[in-house]
């Protein structure tokens, strides 16, 4: 198992750090360009939720992100934050059959994560949220 770690603050400006990190990760691990694109999206959606809604105070918090690649070519991303408990796996999927007028604005971020990744799991341990995302690299 190969592992790489990224730590970001709970600031929107940190997202550019993630873009650079994923570019490098894609090169180091030889990930397909399409997958790097998808991972950018998944990370933006997950981190934006944590940064915007995860904290009630104005303090600086760190968010740990661990990337793993197994011998079986499975990519795993674990995002750990000490924000409010929030289980995104419980969020209902949007109704895609609605007309433009009926479609609510927003609510697509978590749905995109679920559609892109093979598996989305959540755990709450020691006052931390653990969001564990996995995807086969070649799927």
């Amino acid at each position: 198992m190969e592992i790489k770690t990224l730590v970001v603050d709970n600031q929107m400006s940190e997202l550019s750090k993630v873009v650079d990190f994923l570019d490098e990760l894609g090169e180091d691990w030889g990930l397909p360009a399409g997958l790097v694109f998808s991972l950018n999206l998944v990370m933006e959606e997950a981190l934006t939720n944590i940064i915007l809604y995860g904290f009630e105070d104005n303090n600086r918090h760190t968010i740990d992100i661990n990337f793993g690649k197994s011998a079986a070519e499975e990519l795993s991303i674990t995002i750990i934050d000490d924000g409010l408990p929030y289980d995104p796996t419980l969020k209902a999927d949007p109704d895609l059959s609605l007309s433009v007028e009926e479609r609510p604005i927003g609510g697509l971020g978590i749905f995109l994560i679920k559609k892109i990744m093979d598996k989305v799991e959540y755990q709450r341990n020691n006052s931390n949220n653990f969001l564990i995302l996995t995807k086969n690299i070649n799927s």
Partner: peptide, 19 residues
């Protein structure tokens, strides 16, 4: 070359407005 849900949100807002 990249769009996230924030971008999709804008597209939907404009589409609703145009309709």
């Amino acid at each position: 070359n990249y769009i996230s849900s924030s971008g999709l949100r804008v597209f939907l807002v404009i589409q609703k407005k145009m309709i």
